[in-house]
Design a protein around this nucleic acid. Sequence first.
DNA 1: ACGTGCATTGCATACGGATGCAACATTGGT
DNA 2: ACCAATGTTGCATCCGTATGCAATGCACGT
Lengths: 355, 355
Amino acid sequence: MRADRGHGLTRNGTIDEKSKRKPMTARELARMIGVSQSAVSRAFTAGASIAPDLRERILRFAEEVDYHPNAIASMLSKSRTNIVGIVISDMQNPFYPALIEKLSRALQRVGLQSLMFNIAKGANLEEQLSALRRYNVDAVIVISATILSGPILRWATEDRAAILINRVAEDAELNCVICDNAEGARAIADHFHDIGRHRIAYVAGLAHTTTNRERQNAFITRIAEHGMTLSALIDGGEYSYYAGRKAATEILARGGTDAIFFANDILAVGGIDALHENGINVPEDIAVAGFDDIAIAGWPHYDLTTFRQPVETIVDVAVGMLEDGSCAPGKPPHVRRLSGELIIRRSTLVPSSAT
Amino acid sequence: MRADRGHGLTRNGTIDEKSKRKPMTARELARMIGVSQSAVSRAFTAGASIAPDLRERILRFAEEVDYHPNAIASMLSKSRTNIVGIVISDMQNPFYPALIEKLSRALQRVGLQSLMFNIAKGANLEEQLSALRRYNVDAVIVISATILSGPILRWATEDRAAILINRVAEDAELNCVICDNAEGARAIADHFHDIGRHRIAYVAGLAHTTTNRERQNAFITRIAEHGMTLSALIDGGEYSYYAGRKAATEILARGGTDAIFFANDILAVGGIDALHENGINVPEDIAVAGFDDIAIAGWPHYDLTTFRQPVETIVDVAVGMLEDGSCAPGKPPHVRRLSGELIIRRSTLVPSSAT
DNA sequence: ACGTGCATTGCATACGGATGCAACATTGGT
DNA sequence: ACCAATGTTGCATCCGTATGCAATGCACGT
């Protein structure tokens, strides 16, 4: 009954001589105690019909002999995996690691594990996402803002609980948890107005992403309402430090700008560096604001005014939707738009003194 | 045969009215085609004994009706999950997201999925790691440098393929893939010597971590061999931007230092900012070097000399160990120490002109 | 003391695919 | 035309847990 058939990870059919001990099963445990396998199963199932003292006896004995229920077998019979697929594609923007870290911890806290699906850009999406279906994940959380068109999204999440974080579904009817991008963009515009700036530039990350469109539209509209001028509108092409640098350089070349709103912080950080290198003072010459409030934004060197995404709340809401079943397939999808917070820092602090 | 018993994610026992369609099974497919369930299974199993034309017929039909083998059931019968548990604890240091991204993609490429175990510091480790065992992950890859003592590590990886990345096992006998920290530290020391610095400070992240000890010991030894002075030795207490700032400030207060080696880049980046704020020129007054070569180190503003960890190679070696079975439980553990590369940038470029 | 009802427990089977074994088909050799 | 060897296929069973159902036990009311 010992190491009779266990095996390791080799794919080539090699039998590894010393391999994992075969773990104990509920049946074995049951036989040792003299109860039925069902009793063992019930002892480990909250709310099951079993006498409290029997349960305790079983649990105690299980601990002694180091028995743990096999989660795989449980998945098969319950057709519930307690696994959530997390689809990501961009770890370069520090906002995502921070979000993923909080999300995976929150999921763990309610007994859900995170299976990572790191989507590479060039590759075959369908192939990469088919594992979502084969592994029977209970739910899919999509964090990628940049990848995945509507149809693919719908295919990947068909008949499955799904939540998009930080993006909305363009055509697909899907659950979304998202920061109120328009609110944030307006807050930045108002703030620029408050500090007396008039000639405003906007730098998009990826122009076509839903987050960018929401921020851009709201920003430009509010700028106009304040009677300020949109001095430049640039699409960086990606959400990256270097795209931010390039955009800032271009804005300088054009001239006539006294405040820049970058679609997110990582762009803004690159922008600030480029401005400094060109001898521009931030905020005296040009005020700069970002969006997200990543850790770097708070670094004294950048000290970037930004609109903080309510990451904790986003995570809580998403996990809550999973728990209360409101995102189950077939239910009408919800879009939860959450308020953020304007964080004013040095990059916009000094009142107008534009050239 | 349609939606008769599927269910969603609710835990409260609620039956969700419209729930997932029950996916097709191999038996159903087999009946539709008029073959046995075994034939279907074999059609999807590489190398199985099945006539090529039958296989093709089954696969074609499966595609038509959108049948996908259920990975969970397969896990149960093969007792192989194709899931690798990735244990992490620190997403703050950008080095880790970058590593994890490459690792998870490499795993996906060989058909392995990544189950994330994000260990929170205060919490009950055993509880958090017990899922590693219950979920029957084929292997465990531990990336956390800071958490997990030897005994816990051994418990978590008992009878299971395991690889530590970026740390060595202190007492436990475990497989490790690690950058040659001593090589890197020596390269930095040599470089400081080459550019004529004499009064050298070392800033540890967490003094007790194996990565730090290797870097620190090798560095201090080599410094001595060159006849240079160790002007300060500081333990930042954590690998963070702010710890780096604090350490740099302290070094300034003591005075008498013309080069600082920070145990990693994120410390160094904080250090550079603090030096700048105190009116110190880098590298003219104080040269600075880090370790890892994170993206930020390459940003023009920091332009940090550093020792680049061979992340791609680390990932390849780790995945290779999984594939060839050399990390199967019971096999003698290997420690693969990989060479990195000194990346010289502006933070050390100018020859000595120390105060 | 007997009936009723609830709490426990075990039995049997389901979950969906993998695989040893036997049955069967095909090919080739003589 | 017969036998052996090889190649295919299906049958039956297993993987380990969950759960409907029936059986049992016990307490309580009259």
